[in-house]
């Protein structure tokens, strides 16, 4: 009996190894956010292009995307065409969070590449980013019409991700809100 006990660590270890192996195939880039199903943090902040302060009241009162970006961020250029298409087609409003960037560089970036955002919150010191639990640009939050965060996507939002994750999620949100 006591000899059998000695095999407990072996079994425990292989359970751990199995877990790690399984973990390799889980999508951990889909980072959890403690803010899921919580309202957006309150803010009163400048925008990149405007001079007056905006608050939560200025956000769209329908489902929208909150996209964290920066002029220094190369992956942001990759997702940029998707965001442009979405906002130009009027499919969904996109609000930007210009994260840890400089206003002048951000303005230039929007000039050169085009501006998909209704407006971009100017988060130079990353304060809002901290409140949102942002790891870095790019990240995209899906916000429902009550200003509640419903989904968080870390890294590039391309057409595939849009089709496979965001479209179903948005359809679900719409159905839910019609139901109410």
């Amino acid at each position: 009996m006591s000899r059998l006990k000695l095999f407990v660590p072996v079994i425990g270890f292989f359970a751990l190894a199995l877990l790690l192996w399984r973990g390799l195939y889980l999508n951990t880039r889909e980072l959890p956010s403690v803010l899921i199903d919580k309202p957006l943090p309150q803010f009163e902040i400048e925008t990149v292009l405007g001079s007056q302060l905006v608050t939560n009241q200025d956000l769209p009162d329908k489902i929208f995307l909150l996209n964290v970006w920066g002029s220094y961020c190369l992956p942001c250029l990759v997702e940029h065409p998707t965001l442009m298409r979405l906002s130009e087609a009027g499919e969904i409003p996109v609000v930007g969070v210009n994260y840890r960037d400089r206003q002048k560089l951000a303005i230039d970036w929007l000039d050169v590449n085009g501006n998909p955002f209704s407006f971009s919150l100017l988060d130079e010191d990353g304060r809002l980013g901290i409140d949102l639990g942002v790891y870095g640009a790019p990240e995209t939050f899906l916000i429902d019409r009550n200003g509640v965060i419903r989904y968080r996507h870390v890294s590039v939002l391309d057409e595939n991700i849009w089709r496979e994750i965001f479209e179903p999620a948005i359809a679900e949100l719409r159905a839910e809100q019609v139901g109410l």
Binding site: R3, L6, F7, F13, F14, L20, W21
Partner: peptide, 28 residues
């Protein structure tokens, strides 16, 4: 890169799993 993960996991399983097994057999 998942291939890298699998390889290190294999080293991990071989070294630690193997030695724990050896331990179970020899510790008495």
């Amino acid at each position: 890169d998942p291939a890298r993960g699998i390889f290190i996991l294999a080293i991990f399983a071989l070294a630690i799993g193997g030695s724990l097994l050896l331990f179970a057999l020899r510790a008495p």
